[in-house]
Design a binder for these strands. Structure first.
Lengths: 363, 363
DNA sequence: ATGAAAGCGCTAACAA
DNA sequence: TTGTTAGCGCTTTCAT
């Protein structure tokens, strides 16, 4: 990028390489192949005695070329240390091989397995994942997405903080699948929220708890809506009464806040919107002399890493986050490869109850 | 990429736009600007009545162009919805604006803040971060890095599992800075390990504990080496005896394993290689009737998220991980911008002791 | 300050 | 099956 002494080129324009065409005044340079930068298909082509396009084919669609020549080309390429240039390929194909995964907070343990699931499935399909952390800010989410958009082939949008409209806006620019949130007209994959809370209530019911308090999540949360709805239904079917307490911030602090309110109207059973709230709740009531699970049984949600570390270990609903991520990627890749985005109902993946020590029979 | 009916082009080759040059046999198409895909500098140039190169300058180096024309161009560009194409730019400049951040395990809370620090600082410098999770496997680390290498402008290598030789190999292909590990000849930024353990020992010493057991980290860990070394030195200066127990896996399980051994030779003070080990240790000894901190005071290391959630909350050494990440990026960006990689000693960032409830006076 | 034109390295018609 | 030839959209000399 700046040499002005360049004369002989190795590139495409001049036909079959101008042999000894050193320009008159130039200091005679040794006949050196390649001037700077990495070797290109032209270098390989020349060394292998084939056309550049053949080299290109040998790499981008093996099978479209005689296996003998292909082998020779690969051989030569290896010797020269040739590596295909992703930028050039991207410019020509408009495909980068990059997938964006957007999450509201990398720090949130809930996303670990989702990330892993996405990464693995993506790698399998030959894609690299660009992780976008929006830090719970829809502005940042939008900006980061804006930056990523032009360089990715598709987007996995996890637990977005943006409006449905904004999401759909972006979805028409690139293939997308929503995770942990169902967005109309956009392929979505979500955990079985209603089944999850149902299992929790069932569990508490079997232990003799009734009524049960639901420590609700953030107001705008799609998941919270689904869970509360599921809880109401389950309440009817199982004949266990449920109360709602919230909305709460989905954090330890949120749980602490919930504890204050709960102390007024104690129920022996509690289901939290997520593990963080459950943990904050338990810590707070414990500090006030309430015993868990003797005085109150609490069920968390998500089965995050820390839920097995706290005292007592938390009974919780485990969501198959890895599977969730993988399913999203499969769907996304299918879209990229040309499949019509399926506008049907969201893909629902199953959840399960993990019994630990924060729940016990009513005394 | 497939239309074979294209005739009139909007692109560069033809000079000042062939007015009504519809070819003889072609069905007369309406005078439609732009055929497909996003608008390019050529579209903007034409609409603004300037040359493509001027549009390019207006965006890539403002100031190199008359501010009036620049404004007009930006105006027109906005109207047309023009966005510069990163792939094309990358191909032309060999710069992608991407930085790779490699960590051994996204799941490990230690990396949260590092990641955030890196992201923020990178964003500030106009870069986007490609997070590479090697899952504690040097093979995976190498492969992922291999994929990322050609598309990034530089690499922040966090706690690498690769050999020094392998690291140096990669470092000569792209600018790099090592994090949490000092690699000779490569700019590195590390937390003040020796100061950290010294503070821990000091704290325990003040509380009257002597001797103190060090629950060592993984054998191959660079950080563990530094910490143990620092501990020996501090031991001398502070006149507090230290024993070493390990190596241990840097996990909760590792701490459980350590507990078994510790029960034979109880010391009233314990310093763990990291918080996870400390947590496992505490849980395990507590289950055997040992009280924390009455019977044993334990200091963790890292101050991960969960360390404030366990019972009792963990006294620990907080490493300024966000600052660590930011420092690494600053250094890296400087390198990319042409600065010589500084081969001096690693940049060391300070740490501090966070007192919580897992330590107390010797009884 | 602006324009003209030559690439950057690869893919994809089209032809042979 | 392979070669020829245009581009992909932007940057960057070199002129003007």
């Amino acid at each position: 990028m700046g040499h002005d002494t360049d004369e002989e080129r190795t590139g495409p324009p001049p036909g079959p390489a101008p042999e000894a065409e050193t320009s008159p005044e130039e200091p005679p340079s040794p006949v050196v192949r390649r001037r700077r930068g990495a070797p290109t298909i032209y270098d390989v082509a020349q060394a292998a005695g084939v056309a550049p396009s053949t080299v290109s084919r040998a790499f981008s669609r093996p099978g479209r070329v005689n296996s003998d020549t292909a082998n020779r080309i690969r051989q030569v390429a290896a010797e020269l240390g040739y590596r295909t240039n992703p930028m050039a390929r991207a410019l020509a194909t408009t495909h980068t091989g990059l997938l964006a995964l957007v999450v509201p907070d990398i720090t949130n343990p809930v996303y670990f397995e989702i990330i892993n699931g996405v990464q693995d499935e993506a790698a399998e399909a030959g894609y690299t994942v660009l992780l976008v952390d929006s830090r719970e800010s829809d502005t940042r989410e939008r900006q980061a997405l804006e930056r990523a958009l032009p360089i990715v082939d598709g987007i996995v949008l996890g637990t977005s903080r943006m409006s449905d409209a904004a999401i759909r806006m972006i979805a028409k620019q690139k293939p997308m699948v929503a995770l942990n949130r169902a967005v109309r007209e956009i392929p979505s994959v979500v955990p079985d929220n209603s089944r999850g809370v149902r299992r929790a209530l069932e569990h508490l019911g079997e232990l003799g708890h009734d009524p049960v308090t639901y420590l609700a999540g953030p107001e705008a949360s799609w998941a919270d809506g689904m869970r509360w709805r599921g809880l109401r239904e389950a309440s009817l079917e199982l004949s266990v009464h449920v109360r709602r307490l919230g909305p709460l911030s989905p954090t330890v602090a949120g749980g602490v806040a919930a504890a204050k309110a709960w102390l007024q109207t104690r129920t022996s059973g509690v289901i939290a919107y997520n593990d963080l709230i459950a943990i904050g709740f338990i810590r707070s009531v414990t500090a006030r002399g309430v015993r868990v699970p003797e005085d109150v049984s609490v069920v968390g949600y998500d089965n995050i890493f820390a839920s097995d570390l706290v005292t007592p270990p938390l009974t919780t609903i485990a969501t198959p986050r890895r599977a969730l991520g993988a399913a999203a990627v499969r769907n996304l890749v299918a879209q990229i490869r040309g499949a019509q985005p399926r506008v049907g109902p969201p893909v629902v993946v199953p959840v399960k109850l993990v019994e630990r020590e924060s729940t016990g029979p009513r005394l």
